[in-house]
Write a protein that binds this DNA or RNA. Structure first.
Lengths: 418, 418
DNA sequence: CATCTTTTGTTTCATCGCGAACCTAAATCG
DNA sequence: CGATTTAGGTTCGCGATGAAACAAAAGATG
């Protein structure tokens, strides 16, 4: 079961059908697979590799690797860059990197801001548009109109030779993966709306995928760029502005679940007799470690920044300390349950929780050590991952770009499939 | 990302390596993939298909399907069976089924019994050996010796033409997937031992995989036979004799986690102030809904059978009713957290919990409806799945046989790889 | 400075696996 | 008995990769 050999088995991306009615592999499938392997290899490499290095890394002959690279270069999915000044003996190589003319649009709607960002296959931001906005309880339509015109402005300045391959949208709520509808966003007070529809004509014709904010933010922790893995490939991710968004990453892939509703660690029950949550349940983690819950428990205004809370606690502010201890305890309990379910002993805290990590970590790790079944063999760890603004917008773009890495044949000039 | 096209990408069975250093696909890979597809198709089919039907189901030409089937028949992985009496017009077909001469040995050690079972690729039990045993707190060595001689007896009576492809062992505890060691089995009181070593010479040379009992029992819920999916492909599974074993199944695959420690739903925290658990934590689900906890709370002896408990509760036995309500409440809380993490709204209760399901279900489902975020769109359901004796032994055999379905080329006469 | 060595990348040809078209086998139907 | 229908085999061409020789472009060396 663990061969180091390619697996031509059918994709299980959609719910498994009853029978094993999946397409067989043919010669062209072989080529598609190897094209994808070359793109993955180029994208994942720390240093721009040559054709020969790609061949060595993949086990292909130089001939095959070269043929495939040529096709990818023609399609703009891989770029040849200037050869380096430092030369070794032998014919100088032609360094290969991911194509900078393959671009996706990443969008994010948050309770506090709107973001639109253009990202290329190398993971670099070409242009972005960020604007603060107080959207909690607002009418959704104007927000999407604003986001649409921001996108338009970005796209207008795009050089003519880039290929815009799609758009991704991150939303802080429950999204239906099939239809792309936002089912419920408690912090915004929005329910059952179709973002693709509300964004309107701006993005007409551009394929749009909608996803959960925490899931997409987590993707920027696990990946520096599309196809380039970060240091961590297995971790739980918690982020939150008002509530707590959660995601689980396994093998570098975000665990979205069949409908896209997995990873809601913020609504793991800490204490069934605890305070009521907006979600209708009681004692959810969010009610202890959410920003709102935390600042309120500390006797501060809801929008007190995290570093101020940290400073107060460090200077002996008793209620602040109690609130943080309470949050740490809740985090420990909820994360322990999550780790027992998922076998992922690493937690990454993002957003304002990243700032609080030094205060939270000792208590959380102690509780995890006592409550996680496998702690005796692998000690659970908590770490912070400070994010740039609107990481989920980048993550949304990554998700689209990852499709090019996974199946580049769809974007080459080759014979069109389906 | 969701094409109905085979995916030749490398297996991610082992932890993702840093770079994308995976083998490229070659012609032989194509063949291996299509061989596997044929085996899957034959194994999954409800009615034994002909070569032509295999071709139609997979999208291959009849020529290709026929070639591949021939090779599989030669290797004994697929069997041609007698043509049916009822004939249609045209040349009669040759029905194909999974090979009955490919056999695996499934073993299970439980606190209450030992089991050894020979299962073929069709999922049928060829022979089995079950014996009661009170192993809690016992010395592990004699138990494995007994299991070894039971296996020996089974293997001795095996016809000479069968191919024994391996053995699987189910244990009620934490197992290290890499090494196959049992790290900790609280109900047995065993720690850190090597089952392959203790089973000794009997199975020498036979590859042995060790797995968690609940994970393997869940595999028999999701699959009727190796490669033949059951009705459910996404569910949480709970079983327990003394404690509660848990497993999560997603897309027909048991979610084992990176180290094999996932799915420990029995140790999700229901109430941080609850009773202490053997695992070192407090308020685990097991302490409310485990058999021991349940019978004790009902004021009965620990080994009271489930149907007797049911009868008492139905006849108005107050403490029995209270105990069951308490268990249902705990199940609701723990399962709600699990569902929020995994996006799997179906629970299957096995073992003695299956018997109690009629009493538990109303309360559990009501709590789930209130605590699961996605319940408004998909209502969580609880169902029972009564199992035969030692289901995990069958599951352990299935796991080995599934390797043949996944990669039949390793068992054909073709050129040996690696 | 001419030549050797080394490494990259290309070209040519053989091999292998699948698809397409045609052919044979074995049954029912008329 | 021949026509029809369906299962399955045979032959040949195509496409993709591998192997090996070749061409290119640099430093190393005398």
């Amino acid at each position: 079961m663990s061969l180091d050999v390619p697996d031509l088995s059918p994709r299980r991306s959609q719910p498994a059908t009853t029978a094993a009615a999946t397409a067989s592999a043919r010669q062209s499938t072989l080529r598609e697979s190897n094209l994808a392997l070359v793109v993955r290899t180029v994208a994942a490499a720390a240093e721009a590799p040559s054709r020969a290095e790609v061949a060595a890394a993949t086990g292909m002959t130089r001939a095959t690797a070269s043929r495939l690279v040529d096709e990818l270069v023609r399609a703009g999915i891989v770029d040849e860059i200037e050869r380096p000044a430092v030369l070794r003996r032998g014919r100088p190589m032609t360094p290969l990197v991911a194509g900078s003319r393959i671009v996706a649009l990443g969008l994010q709607v948050d309770a506090g801001f709107l973001a639109a960002r253009l990202v290329d296959l190398r993971g670099q931001t070409l242009a972005e548009h960020l604007q603060p906005a107080d959207l909690a309880g607002s009418d959704p339509a104007p927000a999407f109109v604003r986001l649409g015109s921001a996108s338009e402005a970005l796209l207008a300045r795009l050089p003519p030779d880039v290929r815009l391959i799609g758009a991704g949208l991150a939303l802080p709520g429950i999204v239906d993966q099939e239809t792309g509808r936002l089912l419920h966003a408690p912090n915004l007070g929005w329910s059952d709306l179709d973002p693709a529809d509300l964004l309107g004509s701006t993005l007409a014709g551009l394929p749009l995928t909608v996803g959960n904010e925490a899931d997409l933010a987590a993707a920027t922790v696990s990946h520096h760029a599309p196809g380039r893995a970060g240091k961590l490939s297995d971790f739980l991710y918690l982020s939150g502005e008002i509530g707590i968004g959660g995601a689980a990453v396994r093998g570098g892939q975000v665990v979205t679940g069949r409908h896209g509703w997995a990873g809601e660690i913020g609504h793991v029950c800490v204490d069934p007799n605890g305070p009521p949550c907006r979600c209708g349940s009681t004692g959810c983690l969010e009610q202890y470690a959410g920003r709102h819950a935390l600042t309120t428990a500390a006797g501060l205004t809801p929008d007190t920044p995290a570093d101020q809370l940290t400073e107060l606690a460090r200077n002996g502010h008793r209620t602040a300390q109690t609130a943080i201890t309470r949050a740490a305890r809740a985090l420990g309990i909820a994360l322990a349950s999550t780790m027992n379910i998922l076998d992922i002993p690493t937690v990454v805290l993002g957003g304002y929780l990243a700032t609080l990590t030094p205060l939270l970590r000792p208590d959380v790790e102690e509780i995890l050590q006592g409550r996680v079944l496998s702690a005796r063999w692998i000690s659970p760890t908590v770490r912070a991952h400070p994010q740039p603004t609107a990481p989920a917008a980048t993550g949304a773009a990554f998700r689209r770009l990852a499709a090019v890495v996974a199946d580049p044949a769809r974007w080459t000039a080759g014979p069109h499939r389906r």
